[in-house]
Design a protein around this nucleic acid. Structure first.
Lengths: 182, 182, 182, 182
DNA sequence: CATGAATGAGCCTTCATTCAT
DNA sequence: AATGAATGAAGGCTCATTCAT
């Protein structure tokens, strides 16, 4: 029984991982579930047993990929100043260290307007978190600081779009934080 | 005859515009050509008459959306220092002023790995243009300056992802250039 | 062009006929469209070109099979007494002379509760037409006459359920009308 | 043990009842077993434990719904004349008093050609029982009397198709028997 | 007895593409 | 240049059925 339950969880997870891999390479909407099934080593039907329909599977993938947890995690820890910026940067880059996650992030971002989940995440990040971050890092919610917070995100996004070779993560973080005066 | 030729061009262009609109909202791969046809007010078959197949249509859309022209245009003008950075920033933001173009940019970026065209553009921008830009704006191709060039791009991308309200384009440009020491 | 239009109508009709045949034998809900397509000698997709979806095709079949036209046709002609009853009986039996139509009638009747169209037809026949028929044939809308009208329908339905051998249509009609005192 | 056995019977019966309910509303072929399972409050697999496969379950439902027992029961009692007709009518209407049974009867009738069981029942009723009934009620197997026997069935069927409101069962029986001269 | 997990077959539907006109 | 008609491939999903526990 317990073994069964554990196996079931494993299977569910295995499907999700397969979906992430396949969606990363073929797009959230273009990748057929048959491909996911093959990658997970299960039958197509089993995906429906666990996720009900394609949309639910996509949603779970999207939830894992969105960077909300990164930002909220750091802000929630009550950090201030450079430590806060550093926390966000490091966790962000760690989260998207894996090539699959990087590709997936792009796929998810491009699903704006198609997935309510993504729209909502955009709102949360751009409208809610940015000012909080600006205040936390640079002391006040001025226009300039909000732009700087955006620059921070943009710089991180740009890193994940195409990680530069010859510059390691920590160095990259140091340079952008220095440049942004954090 | 000439009127005919002009009309033909118009039709071709009308289809492309329709495709951009539809692809922006429904994704480069998910949007059916029937939708493009309806939006353009022509029959589905006519799309094939002008573009041969779906892939070609997508390719033309992608070409219009990629920001290569912006960067190469500014670099090609022989500008240096802040003027160069300003040129890139302003043209970039102008190009993606329209909401359709902004959504489309995301769709195109997410097509990496699926469209050779996009892969190639990534390479051109990240590997070739970034160092050129770094040198052009800050004087030398040091690691730091290349990171700054990335930060410039990231900041611009972040603007197009979700244009901040309350901050106009020129102000945004000024702040990021000041911050980047351009 | 005109030839084309005619051909298209023919194709549409051919599909409908095929559907009637296939639905009659395999049930309105069980028969796969692939079977209809094969019977009609067209591709499955073409069914969707003409009918949009399965439901629409079913609906058109149902409309052809329901006996509303028979009853309304006779009542609409202003007939009275035995002529009216005879009209209904004869047209009804003619309509369902064909074995396909007879099977189909059953399938359609059994779709009550599943197809609004059928529910509505039941209402029209049982609630609206029965009293009209009772009055038209026997002079007044008394309980007895309404039951007789039902008996007329029931007798006809019973004929189509399983046409008796050894008794031809006209004789059957004569006997039931005599028995019902029409 | 005995309690167990009784429970098992109960479960089997509960499944059958659930099937009748679900099949009545969704059709003998369209209703999924998962629906039956949910209605019965058991797992889908248990249906297979008791019935082996879908077909068997359908068959048991059909057997309960067919009116063979009604006719054979009355004929077997050796009744004659109006009493015989009355017996058939009353038992028939009692059997299909419940809305579920009425809908189910239709579903079963429409399964002709799909279920050997139903075909066989049709034959038994129309070919074997009808003449017997004609002779039992009206004295001889003449054409006219056989048609009258059909009219009796048809009238009853018509009642179950859509029970008239304002006319109770006994009255309905009286009128049709009077009209048929039974 | 009873269930959850797993599968394969098959269905409806969509869509890019082609062809005749 | 333009369209409607037609097709084949493939995808999402449902469902009966099986199996291990």
């Amino acid at each position: 029984m317990r073994a069964n339950a554990r196996e079931a969880i494993d299977t569910r997870e295995r499907i999700l991982r397969a979906a992430m891999k396949v969606f990363a390479m073929h797009g959230l909407f273009k990748a057929p579930l048959s491909m996911v099934a093959r990658e997970a080593g299960v039958s197509k039907s089993l995906i429906f047993w666990y996720y009900g329909n394609r949309e639910n599977l996509v949603r779970e993938v999207v939830e894992r990929v969105l960077p909300l947890d990164v930002i909220e995690g750091c802000v929630g820890k009550g950090l201030k100043g450079r430590s806060l910026a550093e926390c966000v940067a490091r966790r962000y880059l760690e989260k998207y260290e894996d090539a699959t996650m990087r590709l997936l992030l792009l796929q998810v971002l491009s699903a704006r307007g198609l997935l309510g989940l993504v729209d909502e995440a955009f709102r949360r990040i751009c409208v809610e978190m940015l000012p909080v971050l600006a205040e936390g890092v640079w002391g006040e919610r001025s226009k300039e600081n909000i732009v700087k917070a955006r620059m921070l995100f943009g710089s991180l996004l740009c890193y994940t779009l195409n990680p530069p070779n010859g510059i390691d993560r920590e160095e990259y973080i140091r340079i952008i934080l220095d440049t942004l005066g954090a």
